[in-house]
Design a protein around this nucleic acid. Sequence first.
DNA 1: ATATTTTTTTAGAGTAATCTAAAAATAAAT
DNA 2: ATTTATTTTTAGATTACTCTAAAAAAATAT
Lengths: 225, 225
Amino acid sequence: MISELSFTEENYLKAIYHLSAEGKENVNTNSLAESMSTTPASANDMVKRLAQKNLIGYQKYKGATLLSKGKKVALTIVRKHRLWEVFLVEKLGFKWDEVHEIAEQLEHIKSPSLIKRLDKFLGYPTMDPHGDPIPNEDGVMKETVRASISDVKVGSNGIVVAVNNDDTLLLQHLDSMGIKLGSRIHVADRMDFDGSVSVTIDEGPKQFISKAVAENLMITLTEKK
Amino acid sequence: MISELSFTEENYLKAIYHLSAEGKENVNTNSLAESMSTTPASANDMVKRLAQKNLIGYQKYKGATLLSKGKKVALTIVRKHRLWEVFLVEKLGFKWDEVHEIAEQLEHIKSPSLIKRLDKFLGYPTMDPHGDPIPNEDGVMKETVRASISDVKVGSNGIVVAVNNDDTLLLQHLDSMGIKLGSRIHVADRMDFDGSVSVTIDEGPKQFISKAVAENLMITLTEKK
DNA sequence: ATATTTTTTTAGAGTAATCTAAAAATAAAT
DNA sequence: ATTTATTTTTAGATTACTCTAAAAAAATAT
């Protein structure tokens, strides 16, 4: 049985999960400390504690990796975080960029039946408002396909997750079209002769996007609008 | 400014609030300790800490009382607890006897905008699923006049707002009779010899309720059915 | 290959909340 | 008015988590 973990322990496991998802096999003390906004000494203490509990693997000077038990915990936290974010945006009307802090608190509520019912209430979503996938009860998540809207098939739906360009003019242009991170996009048509794309944004009217803009607009594909 | 309180501090304030609502002007160490399932020594330590922070008044051997700051905190916790209970029952489909523990966790989530939006989402309820009033943002609650159906006059109508007993058997019995919070009850008759009561529930057929059950069934009186 | 820098770990201490056991104050009983 | 019982408070220790400062190991530079 997995003994009750503290909020702090859960947060460390989540941080190790996110850091090792970003490539690095072993999570080193310094980056873990930075990610947790604490000192390397504290991170080191906690790493030793989590290793003691068989949640992570750890050898001196070699960094930490999640063991199966720890990974399960981390994925449960991620699942809860993302489900709550969906709730906050879809049901309570928060903007997608206002929900992170609140979800950071809600993710630690301990009640499996609550999460089961919340999941059902939300219609079993597979993606959070930022376009990140929601792990299922077994920790499995749908691999998200990320592509620019000049590459996806006509008829595709997706959520804007990135803009591949820092050009102020481009950002202003997107802003004036009402396109921002989290916007739901439907690709209605694409003109072969100039590569421009016709889309609807958040169920609004059809708008045209030039090839140059379309190439820089990244979405993750969703089944339905 | 009110510095961030720990969950424990919030729980103590809530306990002092509930205990002083039950009559006693000053909450004594022993009953506070019992209510918090801890030792008198711990309760005493915490009382000193809360007094230091000007949340409660306290003199050695004289017990504790909420000061205005502490009362405000306590009422906010109670408000959050009861709003979350409404959410769990009305939106997620929990039974009203399953929600207390989860609400005990949710009540500590810190986000005023979350509670504002939740309140709106729920339609600004004034009562929780147990029939207890929900304080508004200023800590004011609608005082409800309640009585058990063994005390009200024959011919009275009312709405079930509480069951004065946590016994699972009683709750199951009420459930099987179709009696739940919010049920409209008409007291058709009362038998003097055994104190049993004849009622209709939600305009249904007449049913008998034993004295023991009737005593625990609390309603608020309404003019007409 | 040695010196320097960076990273990681240890040592020692602080805080919030908890406990047990014992002392002090108050309340109740004779 | 003492004695007895109860309640409340103190004293001292424990646990989880945190920190600063310094030592040790590893990585990098010369």
